[in-house]
Design a protein around this nucleic acid. Structure first.
Lengths: 349, 349
DNA sequence: GCGGCGGAGGAAATCGCTTTCCGGACCGTA
DNA sequence: TACGGTCCGGAAAGCGATTTCCTCCGCCGC
């Protein structure tokens, strides 16, 4: 059990200590299929433990494909992204792989630079999750790098949008919206305001059209649906809702927000304006962020299988299929306290 | 601009395309100090761009120390950890380094295995952030591996606790608690309940003792301070507060939670029980997670310089000083809506 | 005119490991 | 006894870069 170890302990040192060749040591420690007698293996293991030796992953990576996955996200600080990252890490570890993370503030320039940088690690896969990027089609430059990377044997997985060309896991945004619209219509709401941003993100516009389809499927006339544009964050919801409150909310049964942050902003504006949620107006979100259950009233929303998505992304990344496949995952409605049936009101025309 | 590239493009290919030796290509692309004429450099760069080539980080790592940092955390999903990770990533990128993350659920066994695994990457530094681990001293085994790693030229940085032996960034947990206790006492609260878990985490017990010291420093008698034990998450706070509400909160002026999650859980239990915050009871947290301002009422808490800590950790990790240094960072009180002066009540005895 | 110096480029050794390829030992069978 | 087949173990050839040397060349100062 000597703790003395010349600076970098190498496989050679271990082999010498065990009295075998590096070849044999490599076979024992590297999990080769080549047979090694258990007595020899034992000696090697002991030597390695004594020297506190671990195989050098970089050196290994030169002869075998490395077991690492690079994650490129817009922003690592959002709660949902944290869930995804954690799930990825967990799943990757199961397969003995590493995850290296990077964030690009959704700027195409940084995305490209990040992909370049990370490709240098020759990871087994590149996982991109980016709302922005996916909406406005991948930049041509980025696409080229991604293709070049796949040509070299790498795997590209896109989380959050369907991409014909690569593996991808898409969230059924339209379905989520539909689900909400349907429920809201069914529970007797008729005059509805949709809070959403048109700008960019395909995610959002899919949700909005889902709202509309869900509502009309249950007989809500298009004329009873109004869309108010706002930014996709808390402040956007707040300001939009304040605008509504100023004009009077008597003719509004429900406000459908494009995500939870907007919904929460809206609820807070309503509260400030004395509009009671859900009594006067029902409010819904999409995402089911942690906050959704922490606010009062708890927010009715659509829970997204973030953890599944992360795990699946890694599974795809590490699998060795050939065909690019696209998976579509569904959220499910979580009815809570920010909505209530409006059966007492007059039915829709 | 040919997009054709035999599977793995190597430096040799680039060199051939540029009509130079690999040596020269390496010097141009690898940022060597050896002089290269600008005309030649230009040719190499063009060739590399045409082939969409990026240097292989693994191969580079064999001759030079790699620019990567491995982060080992208890749990990646907590909001505060997400902030730290994001800050680390940002700082690392500035230095052209990578961050690879892993989570260990705070079990010593997994910690050890993770360190072993990650050491294989021969990162320039290992950054450990773990409440649990730091509380009950590092496991002996782990310590050995860490020491062996440093002997090999690696750098170990501990975030969240002072460790003589390694670089470390410590949060002044006692100071944060003191700060809250002081403020609460000053603003006229007398009967105080502290919500905290005794178990394990040195972080928490330091905060708790900070609360007590801060309160007593302003004349609150120890007899007016009660500590209720609960788990360190939202649910723990919720259940503890429900318990308090059941017994009646008439004799309670303030509830000091050991962190924001607990505080938010407590607020939600109070709300459910009809106890008004801050009118009936003031509530405080520590951490200043994003949620703290999103919740109603906005939470009075201690803002921790999470971003700074992350960035500093990476700076330490990448620096090449020799002396292990310990940094102590302070939080600052953020007074918001969940507390209000209780001047109307009877002064403390 | 000549020694020396610095700039530019290349050949080859090297990093730590994996992986062929090969050789010896040992087995059972013909 | 001879022969194919296993089982073990080692020598050596890479993997894709970086990094020493080395060479060559033009230029300056004396």
């Amino acid at each position: 059990m000597s703790d003395v170890a010349r600076s970098p302990v190498t496989l050679r040192d271990v082999a010498a200590a065990a009295g075998v060749s590096v070849t044999t040591a490599s076979r024992v420690l590297g999990g080769s299929t080549h047979a090694v007698s258990s007595a020899t293996a034992e000696r090697v293991h002991t030597a390695a433990a004594d020297l506190r030796y671990t195989l050098n992953a970089s050196a290994r990576a030169m002869r075998r494909i490395s077991e690492s996955v690079a994650l490129i996200a817009d922003d690592l600080t959002t709660p949902s992204m944290a869930m995804v990252v954690a799930a990825m890490e967990r799943q990757a570890r199961k397969a003995g792989a590493f995850v290296t993370v990077s964030s690009t503030r959704a700027t195409p320039d940084r995305q490209l630079r990040t992909v370049r940088l990370l490709r240098g690690l020759r990871p087994k896969a590149l996982v991109l999750t980016s709302g922005r990027l996916l909406g406005n089609r991948l930049e041509e430059q980025l696409l080229r790098d991604l293709r070049a990377y796949e040509r070299e044997g790498g795997r590209v997985v896109i989380v959050g949008a369907a991409e014909e060309e690569f593996d991808s896991i898409d969230l059924d945004n339209h379905g989520a919206g539909y689900c909400v619209g349907n429920y809201i219509a069914q529970s007797g709401h008729c005059n509805v305001v949709i809070l959403g941003s048109e700008q960019g993100t395909a995610n959002f516009s899919a949700r909005v059209s889902g709202f509309v389809d869900g509502l009309t499927s249950m007989g809500v006339p298009a004329s009873a649906i109004r869309t108010v544009s706002c930014t996709g964050d808390r402040r956007g919801g707040f300001e939009a809702a304040r605008g509504l409150a100023d004009q009077g909310t008597a003719a509004i049964d429900a406000v459908l927000a494009v995500n939870d942050a907007v919904a929460i902003g809206a609820m807070s504006a309503f509260r400030a304006a004395g509009v009671k949620v859900p009594h006067d107006v029902s409010v819904t979100g999409i995402d089911d962020i942690q906050l959704a259950v922490d606010v009062t009233p708890q927010l009715t929303t659509v829970a997204l299988p973030l953890t599944d998505m992360g795990a699946t992304a890694i599974r795809m990344a590490l699998a060795d299929r050939q065909e690019p496949t696209t998976l579509m995952v569904q959220g499910h409605l979580a009815v809570r306290d920010s909505t209530m049936p409006k059966s007492t009101r007059a039915p829709c025309p």
